[in-house]
Design a protein around this nucleic acid. Structure first.
Length: 979
RNA sequence: GCUCGAGUGGCGGAAUUGGUAGACGCGCUGGAUUCAAAAUCCAGUUCUUUCGGGAGUGUGGGUUCGAUUCCCACCUCGAGUACCA
């Protein structure tokens, strides 16, 4: 039976069931409609479940997706799970529970929570990165990267076969590729004579994913390497563990090949500026020159990168990073000891220490000299830890007059500071500015400005063979191996230490079972524990390790069974292409996505997610997309056309105060009163004093209390603590005493902090849905403020949107039954409706969802006052509100007698004519301050308005007898009188 | 240090091209209804005031008939980044 009350639980369950059963939000890949792709950054399903901060972005994107459906678009709005990751593995290490099981449980919980909020997701396209059917194609992309090289001539990636063809016909001398630095030149004839292993070794230096011994960020506590973006302030992003430098053989991704395109692409996409800025900084393009200095008395060169080759005549010494390869070779005998000691000391210092300590100047002279390319003068070669091995060539030409770090170094060690700037005082500090000065004491550069000097010196460097113009990037190749269990296995086995790819038709290579999720005793990654983890090239299956052909044992015959890779892929592998996977609906085993699907959906039109992925996921996803485009697998250069960052929802923590050394808790207001008295030097009452035995009040010193987080579930919106609940919450509070306010309540203090389990300030969306309904939750999350802004969660305000929904309901349905009639709408009715259409449409298109909610409230308030019952008004209103509060909209739409879902009902069209007015209540200002208002017809001329206003008695009162200097009349807007 | 963003009532916030500052909601105050409570409804709520008015969007200055909005300097908070040659 149909009730007349707004029974949100019933309504929401009913429509969620309807949507599911009818596949209301399933997108079609062949449609006459224009496409629109709305995507959320998919969640990692953690054990804690969703809190109210998570759905914020999902609600916003859902509103947009639903709006686009009303506008006649075929909308793809999918969802899935980034389900490989460290927390499940850590949990497995602690409990022995298989990560696949915990992940599955967590996903089920997430799904249940998401379903309750009424999102219009197309779940038929769900992806899970840990699903073998999904990571089959992650493995495939890896293989394609392995089978590719970057051709600088065409500025594209190409199949490795095209490179081999070049080697076979012309060698590598004329190959312009992005590759390793240490490439030896060979001719076509050489190539054909190389054995298979040598060829493989050479090709590895060109491949877009390659195996190389690299210096990595090793995190001993996590037992794995970390990428640069996974380290924050020298410690691991997850867990805050120390990170040290270590040399390891690792898979790397040659993302550096794409540095310039990643930079250029930013101009073509609609992303928030701060996000673009951080990618720009991360890529770190700088333009300058590569200059070669000869080492005196050695057959060795030092290459340096400099952005200021124009200051080359200011070079008075050189500094190498302590780790620089040449150091050992060139150090003289009498400096050997000092240099060794310094190198030893720096290698022991952690990254963190080196970063924290930027003030101490340290370094050692190697005893060797370099020759200045232009003057031939001898300059000392030093080592110093202010030079980073990982940037440029790990060496600098020091120009102390133009660079503050070189200047400080020179001052500290008493080195020369030659001045090459015309009329600049460098007795106190270096002159770092580029503009506004001319070069002096620099031979052919004398008298030139920065720009001209740059051109001239690069020309000369190139002409005389001392160097060349170069663009350098800070962006490093990304390490792609992780020493973890819960990640994608590599489709790789090793023959004679050389990596071999498994053919795509044998994928996926599924994650093996292991006894323990920790590294092995010999320090191998967790997959080293797997017993069935060898590749049989005869049967193309994974087989028991005991059959493995051992390379160490010369006696054994090669049986075609080889060890598989023990590392797994990093978290960003699966998330770098998942947006393409959603496009494919049916034949997911045959391709990562079909050509037709890719052609139809192209890329994501709107992407919503957090800004914390700026230099991780969002950069890698752009990289893989460009690569897939180059190789013709997808048609787009950028994955996400428009991106919006949603702000974080913060928790409002509650604190109780415990008097030190006791189990007595003191209510906040009492504590504040006493603190104030102490600060003002007032005497405390005997009772107050007795609370703090053995404590002498000193002004300015706060009372000896400890603040403790109380669970926000135990605190009312008026900051009152549920004392009984608190006592039962933790056993050590069982016998606690409470010093309460006069009215007998116990008050807590509030503070805004990040929402987290450990701060006991987490609020779950389920609780809200249960108490007020999903529509209330959706409206309230939007109502909190602008989407991109961080904002504190305060449940108190939810009653506002909840009563709004009840009011909305009552507009349609009275206690006695439906009130909608076929009456003609009044002028006021139409005006209210159309100004609402105009505003809501503007707001959605500008992602200003908070103001729409206000607009709905105003609209319903006005229609209630107008006692509007007209279907012509109320029916379009349900569509307007449906993106925000879809359940109530569906139900009202249904009760208005419509068939089926409201989801694709046409969005009402705004008509200006309903807003046209014949008169305006003009604000009348004096010197810019509004003093009174006057209703005037809109068709009056400026002169007429001026005349009427000047005759108004209130004007005379304001002017107080004076004649106005000027009268400004803006018809339809304002009148301003200048006195 | 550098880059970016933000400062408006007790609180969240609004003000679309420079044109009525504080919309809308919370909270609070008073009233109606109720045995009572919840719920609901009505009125008020930036500060100040001698009830005429006056002041007011972080601070100081500028442009303008008119500035929360534009310009300059400064202060505070937040985010990112950090010896990048």
């Amino acid at each position: 039976m149909i009730t007349m009350k707004y029974n949100f639980n019933e309504i929401e369950a009913k429509w969620q069931k309807y949507w599911k059963e009818n596949g209301t939000f399933h997108a079609e890949n062949d449609s006459e409609k224009p496409k629109y792709y709305v995507l959320d950054m998919f969640p990692y399903p953690s054990g804690a479940g969703l809190h109210v901060g998570h759905p914020l972005g999902y609600i916003a994107s859902d509103i947009y997706a639903r709006y686009k459906r009303h506008q006649g678009f075929n909308v793809l709005h999918p969802q899935g799970y980034d389900s490989f990751g460290l927390p499940a593995e850590q949990y497995a290490i602690q409990t022995g529970q298989h990560p696949a099981i915990t992940t599955k449980t967590n996903i089920a919980r997430y799904r249940e929570q998401l379903d309750k909020i009424g999102f219009s997701f197309d779940w038929s396209r769900e992806v899970r990165t840990s699903d073998p059917a999904y990571y089959k194609w992650t493995q495939w992309i890896f293989i394609e990267l392995f089978n590719s090289w970057y051709n600088v001539e065409t500025d594209k990636a190409a199949h490795i076969d095209t490179l081999v063809a070049k080697f076979e016909t012309e060698g590598n001398a004329n190959v312009n590729a992005v590759c390793d630095d240490d490439i030896a030149i060979f001719a076509a004839a050489d190539w054909t004579q190389y054995d298979a292993k040598t060829k493989q070794e050479i090709l590895l230096k060109y491949r877009l994913t390659y195996l190389a011994e690299t210096e990595v960020n090793w995190c001993p506590a996590l037992g794995t390497v970390l990428a640069n973006d996974e380290i924050v302030n020298g410690v691991s992003e997850r867990g805050g563990h120390p990170v040290v430098r270590k040399k390891m053989t690792q898979w790397s991704m040659r993302i550096s090949a794409y540095a310039q395109r990643l930079l250029d692409g930013l101009n073509t996409i609609d992303w928030p500026q701060p996000l673009k800025d951080s990618q720009t900084n991360w890529i770190g393009r700088s333009q300058g020159a590569m200059v070669t200095f000869k080492v005196d008395g050695h057959d060795a060169n030092i290459d340096v990168f400099t952005t200021r080759p124009d200051t080359i005549y200011g070079v008075s010494f050189m500094t190498l990073a302590p780790e620089h390869d040449l150091v050992q070779k060139i150090t003289t005998a009498d400096q050997k000891e000092a240099v060794e000691a310094y190198r030893d000391a720096t290698s022991k210092r952690s990254e963190r220490e080196r970063m924290a300590d930027v003030k101490t100047i340290s370094g050692v002279f190697t005893g060797a000299y370099a020759l200045h390319p232009f003057t031939g003068e001898k300059v000392q070669i030093w080592i110093g830890d202010y030079v980073l091995a990982s940037y440029g060539t790990g060496a600098v030409m020091a120009v102390p007059c133009g660079d503050q770090r070189d200047y400080d170094f020179a001052k500290h060690f008493g080195l020369d500071i030659p001045n090459i700037f015309e009329g600049v005082d460098i007795s106190e500090e270096a002159y770092g500015e580029k503009e506004g000065v001319k070069i002096a004491n620099s031979d052919f550069l004398n008298g030139l400005t920065y720009k001209k000097a740059m051109k001239t010196v690069i020309y000369e460097l190139e002409k005389r063979g001392f160097g060349k113009g170069k663009i350098n990037y800070r962006l490093r190749d990304a390490v792609f191996s992780r020493q973890r269990y819960w990640g994608e296995p590599f489709p790789v086995y090793y023959v004679n230490g050389m990596p071999q790819m498994i053919d795509v038709k044998h994928l996926p290579i599924a994650l093996p079972e292991v006894e323990k999720y920790l590294p092995t005793e010999t320090g191998e990654p967790p997959l080293g524990n797997a017993e069935v983890w060898a590749w049989d090239t005869n049967t193309n299956t994974v087989v028991d390790n005991k059959h493995c052909h051992s390379e160490l044992d010369a006696e054994s015959t090669d049986n075609g069974i080889y060890p598989l890779e023990l590392n797994t892929m990093p978290g960003w592998a699966g998330s770098s292409w998942y947006f393409f996977r959603y496009m494919e609906k049916a034949l997911r085993d045959e391709h990562f996505a079909s050509q037709e699907a890719l052609d139809y959906w192209e890329n994501v039109d709107l992407y919503i997610g957090g800004s914390e992925h700026a230099t991780g996921h969002l950069l890698y996803a752009r990289f893989w997309t460009k690569f897939l485009k180059d190789r013709g697998f997808v048609g787009v250069e950028e994955p996400f056309k428009k991106l919006i960052n949603q702000g974080m929802i913060l928790g409002t923590s509650a604190f109780v105060f415990r008097i030190d050394g006791t189990n007595k808790f003191i209510s906040k207001n009492i504590l504040d009163t006493i603190n104030e008295k102490v600060n003002n030097g007032e005497n405390l009452s005997e009772q107050e004093h007795s609370l703090f035995e053995n404590w002498t009040p000193i002004s300015g010193k706060s009372l000896p209390v400890q603040s403790i987080h109380a669970d926000v579930a135990l605190v009312s919106s008026a900051d009152t603590l549920d004392i009984e609940g608190f006592k039962n919450w933790r056993s050590d509070f069982k016998d606690a005493e409470f010093i309460c306010e006069e009215d007998g309540t116990f008050k807590v203090a509030r503070e805004v902090e990040k929402m987290s389990k450990s701060k006991y300030n987490v609020v779950n969306p389920d609780e809200i849905c249960e108490a007020y309904g999903a529509d209330s939750l959706r409206l309230f999350e939007m109502f909190l403020g602008p989407l991109e802004q961080a904002k504190p969660w305060n449940t108190a305000g939810i009653t506002g949107v909840f009563s709004f929904l009840k009011k909305l309901w009552k507009l349609y349905i009275a206690d006695e039954g439906p009130r909608v009639t076929e009456t003609e709408p009044t002028k006021d009715n139409l005006k209210t409706l159309h100004k609402t259409i105009k505003k809501v449409q503007y707001d959605i298109e500008n992602f200003s969802f908070n103001t729409s909610v206000s607009t709905f409230m105003i609209c319903v308030n006005e229609l209630s006052v107008q006692k509007c019952t007209s279907r012509e008004i109320l029916e379009p209103l349900t569509i307007l509100i449906s993106p925000y509060a879809p359940h109530i909209a569906e139900e009202l739409w249904f009760r208005l007698g419509n068939e089926g879902s409201i989801a694709t009902a046409k969005f009402p069209v705004f008509e200006e004519r309903h807003l046209v007015e014949s008169s305006k209540e003009y604000p009348v200002s004096f010197n810019g301050k509004m003093r009174f208002k006057k209703e005037l017809p809109l068709d009056l001329s400026k002169e007429e308005i001026e005349k009427i206003i000047l005759e108004d008695e209130r004007t005379e009162a304001q002017l107080n007898g004076k004649t106005p200097k000027k009268v400004i009349v803006v018809p339809g807007k304002i009148i301003n009188i200048v006195g």
